[in-house]
Simulated assay, not measured.
Amino acid sequence: MTGHVTTPAAALADRLPDWVTLLRAPNPGPMTLEGTNTWVLRAEPGAPALIIDPGPDDAGHLARIAAHTPVGGVLITHGHGDHTEGVDTLAGLLGGAPVRAVDAAYCRDAEPITAATRLAGHGLDITPVAVPGHTADSVAYLVRRGDEQVILTGDTILGRGTTVVAYPDGNLGAYLESLELLGAYQGITALPGHGPALADCAVAAGFYLAHRRARLDQVRAALAAGISTAPEVVAHIYADVDPSLWPAATWSVRAQLAYLAQRREFDPGAGGLDLP
């Protein structure tokens, strides 16, 4: 549970609903896995589609998205560039389709998403679910069509491996609470921002929670052993991880240290820990 996780956190979905289409951006990498997932949801043929996360500003990828017209709107799961760089280009290709996100910086011709936001239309019922932690603006979308449901999880739950808590914008306490919230979505297919679809959002959330708690115990043990800086904690507990991923792991470790400090489990100043 505490080793580097590269496999899916739940069984893979054996199929996607016939109203869900995956378009994967050509931006594979250590952080993006096979590439950023753009999801196209269309309740029935001819109905306006809903686009989740345009992805990078890649002409070919955005043209493939725009080919799925008519499009009723675009939703953003969080503001990282691999999900949002294509917003303006896509909005232009679509003739100004509204774009909505928690952060107003990514909205186009629409209001930001809040706790009171309710989205419906074109045969789809969409409930935004605030899931801060990976980033402060992370949001999932529970989408219903008839008696079928899916939940778009962005980078809060990935199709394989685990995600980073992107400190200081990300917050571990908030992330743990978000995972507990997602644990209520039993039996609902998770459509992640990267990697394959998972059969059960709740199972994946439970795995992530156990993994994060185990990592926290590793950090506690490292502190007790006299480890004095975040990079040293990373080298100690992420020794099985490719060093090219250590900068991202450092974000999560800083988030873990901030979490423990907030809980008064240690004094970061006493050991010279390099928390900002």
Rank of each mutant, 00 (worst) to 15 (best):
L119E: 12
L158S: 05
V241G: 03
T162V: 12
V253K: 00
L172S: 09
L16K: 04
A104C: 06
Q262G: 15
P247F: 02
R15T: 07
A105G: 11
D14H: 11
P56F: 11
A104V: 13
D137V: 03
L75P: 14
A115E: 13
P45S: 13
G29Y: 01
A110D: 05
A67C: 02
Q256M: 11
G60P: 07
A255Q: 02
A63T: 12
D147W: 05
G3P: 08
D103T: 07
L191R: 05
A115V: 06
S138N: 12
V71M: 06
G60F: 08
S178L: 11
H211A: 10
A255V: 04
T21R: 14
A255W: 00
C107K: 09
D125C: 00
D155R: 02
D155S: 06
I52P: 07
A230R: 05
T36Y: 03
R100K: 10
P192Y: 06
T156A: 10
G269M: 09
G35A: 10
P30S: 05
Q218W: 00
A174L: 14
V129W: 08
W19C: 08
V165Q: 09
A9Y: 00
T32P: 01
H78L: 11
H122L: 01
A222E: 08
A205C: 14
S244I: 06
G161Y: 01
V139C: 15
L152Q: 08
D14S: 13
D14Y: 01
A59V: 13
R64S: 15
T38K: 05
P132Y: 06
A261P: 00
I227N: 01
P26V: 03
L22G: 10
A239Q: 09
A130M: 15
A235C: 09
V102W: 06
T7E: 15
D169F: 01
L172I: 07
G81N: 00
A225V: 00
A13T: 05
L176E: 12
G161W: 00
A199V: 03
P192C: 09
E34D: 14
N171V: 04
L75S: 14
A248N: 02
P30L: 13
R144A: 15
V87I: 15
W19D: 08
L41C: 09
S138C: 12
P247L: 04
P132A: 11
A222K: 06
V253W: 01
T84R: 00
L182Y: 07
A210G: 11
Q218R: 13
E177K: 14
I76V: 15
G3L: 10
G271H: 10
D88V: 07
D147A: 11
A136L: 10
L182F: 04
G226I: 02
A199L: 04
R264W: 04
P70A: 07
I188Q: 08
